[in-house]
């Protein structure tokens, strides 16, 4: 997910019909540049080299999502009974439509990851590893992040751990899946929206980390020097 504002212009994106490293290539109607979806970069046209700003986003099943965000809005649809790529998504050997060899086998090709980028540093967090850990504190370059999978039915959320220049670390609270506690002040923070609910930091707000979901093979094609988070 990206901001459509680039400089003083708002762009509108369509599907170019092209693939780059098996990822979607978008074009914009205003300047007719080509942009790669995995990294949000202009690869052809007057803006080549520019990058769109990442808008943090997350993956969840509908069940997980509506539990955490019951008052959300949902893009309207009619009669889409299942993914058109159900078989593709499940097939561990079909990598991209043109077929691809994967050199970097640090993770299985179709592992679902959460990618985080900060400056030139990219880190891939395998969703299953984050779920297993339930709470992960890490640094992506100079960016301290926390990922929380508070319960089986919760989506994974990712926040920047800095509040007013101070870096916090968080722990789970026994018996609570909707809040975590910071170790510095003992304040309680809502998992759903990153706001401090009580304690010395009550009312403070965590920013979302610039994280978004990807397949491992798609991510590493664009960020070959990516780090992989390990417990």
């Amino acid at each position: 997910m990206y901001a459509r504002q680039v400089g003083d212009r708002v762009l509108t994106f369509g599907v170019s019909g092209m693939l780059f490293r098996d990822g979607l290539v978008m074009y914009d109607r205003e300047t007719d540049n080509l942009w790669t979806q995995v990294d949000g970069r202009a690869i052809k046209g007057s803006q080549a080299g520019r990058a769109l700003e990442v808008v943090p986003s997350m993956h969840a099943t509908w069940k997980q999502w509506k539990q955490l965000y019951p008052r959300s809005l949902v893009l309207k649809q009619r009669g889409v009974a299942r993914s058109a790529y159900d078989a593709y998504n499940r097939d561990p050997n079909q990598l991209g439509i043109r077929g691809r060899r994967l050199r970097d086998k640090r993770l299985p090709a179709k592992e679902r990851i959460i990618g985080v980028r900060a400056g030139d540093v990219a880190v891939a967090f395998a969703e299953k590893d984050v779920r297993e850990a339930r709470i992960v504190q890490a640094e992506v370059g100079s960016l301290p992040v926390v990922m929380i999978a508070a319960g089986k039915d919760h989506p994974i959320v990712a926040f920047d751990r800095r509040v007013s220049g101070r870096v916090l670390s968080f722990r789970l609270i026994d018996g609570a899946s909707d809040a975590v506690e910071d170790q510095q002040t003992g304040s309680r923070w809502s998992v759903a929206d990153g706001r401090a609910l009580s304690g010395a930091l009550k009312g403070a707000q965590l920013e979302r980390a610039p994280a978004y979901p990807a397949f491992w093979f798609g991510w590493m094609g664009y960020f070959p020097s990516t780090e992989v988070w390990k417990r």
């Binding site: 997910m1 986003s57 969840a60 099943t61 509908w62 759903a192 929206d193 979302r208």
Partner: peptide
């Protein structure tokens, strides 16, 4: 229930 969504908050 198992439908995958992308969410923004």
């Amino acid at each position: 229930d198992h439908e995958l969504v992308i969410g923004v908050v």
